[in-house]
C-alpha cells in the first residue's frame, strides 16, 4: 500500500447558522488518510459523518481549519476548481444511489466521462470495464427502475469508479440494502480498493460495513472519539471473517 497522503485535515471546525446562533457540527477534527485506505467514519446520526464527507468532497467549505485533498486546500478552490477536483479525482456513492432515472445504466456510468470530454471510444471502453467490475455488463441498457436496490448501488459504484478516482466517498452505501446485498456491495468495493488502489472513505453506522474496514474513525458530537485499525482486517480476509468482525464488535458494545 502506498503511503502517499491523500487527505489532510487540521483543526477542522464546521458551523451551520441556526436562527441567531450557530450549530457546530464538527469541532477540532484532525485526521490524515493515505492512498489505498479502506476507512470509515462511524457514529450515531448527527455525529458529523456526512458533514465531514461533504467537506472532503469539496461540496462545502470549513468554518475554521483546513481540509487538503490530493494537495488542494478545498476552502481556497473556486467552484470550477472544486468541480474539477470532484470530476477527475473523487467518486461519490450515495445511500439512495441517486442514479439519473431517465438514463440507462450505461448512460449513468458514462456521465462523469462526458464531463471530462473523453472521446467516445475511450468512454465506451471505460464504461464497459466499470460495469464488468460490478458484474452488470448485461444490464447496460436497463433503466434504474428496472434494477434491484443492490444492482442500483453497483451501478453507483461503477459510476464512481469509471473515471478511476484516487478517492471514493461513500455515504451510508449499504443503508438501503439487505444483508446479502450489503456484503456484496462492500466486497465489490473492497476488491476495487485492493485491485486499483483506490482510497475508500465511508460514512456508516452499519456493522456489516465496519467488518470490512481497515480503519475506523468514531465520531461523537462532532469530535473524533476513536481512531482505530482493527488488527484482524487484512486484504485477504474472507466474507465470514468480516461478518465475524462485525459480530464481535456488536458483542463488545453490548
Amino acid at each position: 500500500m502506498e503511503n502517499k497522503q491523500i487527505i489532510d485535515i487540521n483543526n477542522l471546525v464546521k458551523r451551520f447558522p441556526i436562527g441567531d446562533g450557530y450549530f457546530t457540527a464538527l469541532q477540532g477534527i484532525t485526521l490524515r488518510f493515505v492512498a489505498g485506505e479502506f476507512a470509515g467514519l462511524v457514529g450515531p446520526s448527527g455525529s458529523g459523518k456526512t458533514t465531514l464527507l461533504n467537506l472532503i468532497g469539496s461540496l462545502d467549505s470549513p468554518s475554521e481549519g483546513s481540509v487538503v485533498v490530493l494537495g488542494h486546500e478545498v476552502s481556497r478552490l473556486s467552484h470550477r476548481e472544486s468541480a474539477a477536483l470532484r470530476n477527475y479525482h473523487i467518486g461519490f456513492i450515495f445511500q439512495t444511489y441517486n442514479l439519473l432515472p431517465v438514463f440507462s445504466v450505461y448512460d449513468n456510468v458514462e456521465f462523469p466521462l462526458l464531463l471530462q470530454k473523453r472521446d467516445a471510444v475511450g468512454r465506451r471502453k471505460a464504461v464497459m470495464e466499470a460495469l464488468d467490475w460490478v458484474g452488470l455488463s448485461h444490464k447496460a441498457q436497463s433503466r434504474p427502475a428496472q434494477l434491484s436496490g443492490g444492482e442500483c448501488q453497483r451501478v453507483s459504484i461503477a459510476r464512481a469508479m469509471v473515471k478511476r478516482p484516487e478517492l471514493v466517498l461513500a455515504d451510508e452505501p449499504s443503508a438501503n440494502l439487505d444483508a446479502k446485498n450489503s456484503h456484496h456491495i462492500i466486497q465489490t468495493m473492497k476488491r476495487l480498493n485492493r485491485e486499483l488502489g483506490t482510497t475508500f472513505l465511508f460514512a456508516t453506522h452499519d456493522e456489516k460495513v465496519m467488518g470490512y474496514l481497515d480503519r475506523i474513525i468514531s465520531l461523537d458530537d462532532g469530535r473524533v472519539a476513536r481512531d482505530e485499525r482493527p488488527l484482524c482486517v487484512n486484504e485477504a480476509q474472507s466474507d465470514s471473517t468480516a461478518e465475524e468482525n462485525g459480530h464481535a464488535r456488536r458483542q463488545a458494545r453490548i
Binding site: 470550477r80 468541480a83 477536483l85 470532484r86 441517486n98 462523469p112 464531463l115 471530462q116 459510476r159
Partner: peptide
C-alpha cells in the same frame, strides 16, 4: 448529483 459528479454550476 451532477454537482457531486463534478459538473460545474
Amino acid at each position: 448529483v451532477r454537482l457531486a459528479l463534478g459538473e460545474e454550476k
